[in-house]
């Protein structure tokens, strides 16, 4: 770096206008470049002010340091006391707000899930109940129908039996009448054909025929 700066200094010097004090100026610069600035400070400041490469001119150091200290301290104070806490506060507020919103959304989501589950439970329950009711109704109706059918069947069977009994009765009655009618008819017939036959004779003759 030292080599570079010396070169730049020479360029600067060549660009400078004061030719008369060139030797002395050059010395001053070399002194400044090679030793600590404090040593060459007075020398350079008094004699080589105009020709020294400005960034290495110790004459400007004091003022720059002073104003740098003042301005940088001001900047640091404003930044650390006002600006950065404010921006940090804004970011923090936003972060908590977003976190709060996310938490709220999560809470609502869980609530929704719970409501949905409750709804599905209720639905399943209702479906089960409906099924049970339908089953019960169906079985009760079936029992009812069975009962009625049974009573109707019993009734019918009884009526059939009664009717059959009556038929049987009528039939026997009729049959017993048939003998009497046949005997009467035969006696009347025989009487017309061959004279009087007693009722007793006709009856025995019919009984003989019926037996055959």
């Amino acid at each position: 770096m030292a080599g570079n700066t010396t070169k730049i200094i020479i360029v600067a010097q060549a660009e400078g206008e004061a030719a008369s004090g060139a030797e002395e100026t050059h010395d001053a610069i070399v002194v400044e470049g090679e030793h600590a600035p404090a040593e060459g400070e007075a020398h350079a400041a008094t004699e080589a002010h105009a020709e020294v490469f400005p960034p290495f001119d110790p004459a400007g150091f004091g003022g720059q340091l002073f104003w740098l200290a003042v301005t940088f301290a001001t900047l640091y104070l404003v930044m650390s006391r006002v600006a950065l806490p404010r921006i940090g506060g804004i970011l923090e507020t936003r972060r908590t707000r977003i976190e709060g919103d996310l938490k709220e959304a999560e809470r609502l989501r869980i609530e929704t899930d719970r409501a949905l589950a409750a709804y599905e439970d209720a639905l399943a329950e209702a479906r089960k109940n409906a099924h049970a009711i339908a089953e019960e109704t169906r079985s009760s109706i079936k029992a009812d129908i069975d009962n009625k059918r049974k009573s109707v069947e019993a009734d019918l069977a009884q009526r059939v039996a009664e009717a059959e009994a009556r038929i049987q009765q009528t039939k026997t009655a009729a049959l017993s009448n048939v003998d009497a009618i046949a005997a009467e008819t035969a006696r009347e017939l025989v009487a017309k054909l061959a004279g009087k036959v007693t009722a007793q004779q006709a009856r025995s003759a019919v009984a003989l025929v019926v037996k055959e």
Binding site: L68, T71, F72
Partner: peptide
């Protein structure tokens, strides 16, 4: 002469800050 004068450098430090 003390060198603490307000220069163009100081001006731009102030402007920067």
């Amino acid at each position: 002469e003390d060198g603490f004068s307000f220069s163009n450098s100081s001006l731009f430090m102030v402007l920067t800050v």
